[in-house]
Amino acid sequence: MNAFRLAGDMTHLISVLVLLLKIHTIKSCAGISLKTQELYALVFATRYLDIFTDFISLYNTVMKLIFLGSSFSIVWYMRRHKLVQRSYDKDHDTFRHQLLVLPCLILALLIHEQFTFKEVMWTFSIYLEAVAILPQLVLLQRTRNIDNLTGQYVFFLGAYRSLYILNWIYRYFTEPHYVHWITWISGLVQTLLYADFFYYYISSWKNNVKLTLPA
């Protein structure tokens, strides 16, 4: 464990807590894409299949449980909770996320490190996570006013993977044979997808104006 990776995990945790805070306290999911939340639940479900078979560390297991629990409860809130549902913008959250799941599954079947069920599922989760934010970014483009909590949620979600890139660079130079091209390329693609959001988010923060994305 290095500082970049710990910072990445904490940033990821903060993004999830910000979202849970928003939904649980003010009972609102305004501006949040249910499609992205469902994709993230699928990412964690397929990535953490080894949660009961491979024990890495207490930290690793606890964090996996937190990410699984939070992502599924967020989907439950947005699908089942009457009050939260009222603020869900289903008319604009129309990204066909099946178009993301199938290509990632096919790609995982073609390009993976080992052809086993768990490894293919893990690789699928890596590819899917890279594109899971797309429905959310599309929704932000469509809804004019982005409230602070939603902006912070997306910002921390993007920041965590860029910290992971620093972690991979660090591990590449400090651990012999530490090479994971699949994770590295997917992580880079994932971070690049946030590039324009980061640009508008930081410039809105610098100019102290409301975050609005260009149409």
């Binding site: 995990d9 890495i56 690793n60 996996k64 990410f67 044979h177």
Partner: peptide, 10 residues
């Protein structure tokens, strides 16, 4: 690490 090692990252 060898390909297919148990993945130690989240």
């Amino acid at each position: 690490s060898e390909p297919g090692d148990s993945h130690d990252e989240l």
